[in-house]
């Protein structure tokens, strides 16, 4: 693949995060409504600025697939780090597919919640729960992706594709995502779905991971060019024969 197309794939990580946070802001998901709110409060939340919220949800749904090129580029880099047998590459590919669902599913339920705000408030509350719980609690796909990348970095032999510190960074990130995984147990406090640790902290970790990983991927595009002259004949890696 041409280096410029690889750069587009890398930047789709940042594009994804921009759409997630932009869409969530428009949909009124940031700051999150309290899990402690009554059915009437939740119904009135969805009844106000409903059209703006729906546009935000449309952006969330559209954005859910934008990270697929980014994830595919990660998988290709993981494969280069792994060598002949590539189980971590398969984990990375499966994780990217799950990542799409992690956003798409709650976004569609938010859409349903916003669709008839005049209905019985308790139904809206149930839909609100059904969207918010997975939105924050669906951490495994992101953790699998970061974990596969981190383990691949530690396993790389010979030439360095990603710097070794990024292996630690990825495993640390994978671990931190789990802070969102307990929201079903709490209606108040820092581990609730609107809490400092389960929501705000994980949101920062999530957003910065996509930005930092995009940057790291962009650096591998440059190193591709140098690789080409060295072993274009022996390597059948993507991009090496492109020019």
């Amino acid at each position: 693949m041409s280096p410029s197309m690889q750069r587009v794939f890398a930047w789709s990580g940042v594009a994804y995060v921009t759409m997630v946070f932009g869409g969530a802001l428009m949909a009124g998901l940031i700051p999150p409504i309290s899990p402690h709110a009554t059915a009437a409060q939740i119904a009135s939340f969805w009844a106000s600025h409903t059209n703006l919220k729906r546009v935000g949800i449309v952006i969330l749904v559209a954005g859910s697939g934008v990270q697929v090129p980014f994830g595919a580029l990660i998988a290709v880099r993981v494969r280069r780090m792994e060598g002949r047998e590539t189980p971590l590459t398969y984990v990375a590919v499966a994780a990217i597919a799950l990542q799409v669902m992690s956003l798409l599913f709650p976004a569609m339920v938010y859409a349903a919640a916003s669709f008839r705000p005049e209905r019985n408030p308790e139904i809206t509350q149930a839909l609100n729960d059904l969207a918010w719980l997975p939105f924050v609690m669906n951490w495994e796909a992101a953790a699998l992706q970061a974990g596969a990348l981190g383990l691949a970095v530690f396993g790389q032999r010979g030439r360095e594709v990603f710097p070794r510190w990024s292996g630690y960074y990825n495993l640390w990130t994978a671990f931190l995502y789990s802070a969102g995984g307990f929201v079903v147990m709490f209606k108040t406090g820092v581990f609730a779905w609107n809490g400092l640790l389960a929501f705000w902290f994980v949101a920062v970790v999530f957003g910065s991971w996509f930005s930092i990983t995009t940057w790291l991927l962009l650096k591998t595009v440059t190193s591709d060019d140098t690789v080409t002259s060295d072993d274009a004949v022996t390597s059948n890696d993507e991009g090496s024969l492109a020019r």
């Binding site: 510190w165 292996g167 960074y169 495993l171 640790l197």
Partner: peptide
């Protein structure tokens, strides 16, 4: 050790520092 382990250690200690602050606040 290696430089990377310090990325992990300092990152993790920052997270726990945040934990401790929220505890003290509550």
């Amino acid at each position: 050790g290696e430089v990377g382990i310090w990325v992990f250690v300092l990152g993790d200690m920052s997270v726990f520092a945040l934990f401790f602050s929220t505890f003290a606040y509550s």
